[in-house]
Amino acid sequence: MVKEIERAGLPVVHMCTVTPISLTVGANRIVPAIAIPHPLGNPALEFDEEKALRRKLVEKALRALQTEVSEQTVFED
């Protein structure tokens, strides 16, 4: 899906936990997520902490969308 969106001309960031799969399917901008059943959250945290964690991940994703890349890139930190 990520590849078809890119092909349509839209920059896209893939937020997922198993980044090797994302690389294999051909995503260009990849942000590693927390866990498979809760990529953008962590149920072990208090609500506020969890939302702050999600905010950080989304900020990273937006940074990825604002970054020029020439090849598949995993935005680690």
Partner: peptide
């Protein structure tokens, strides 16, 4: 199909999440 609609709706970028 989704991309065609997003482009038509003037979307600039996409966040795609996977579990």
């Amino acid at each position: 199909a989704i991309s065609a609609e997003l482009v038509a709706d003037g979307v600039d970028a996409v966040i795609l999440t996977s579990t």
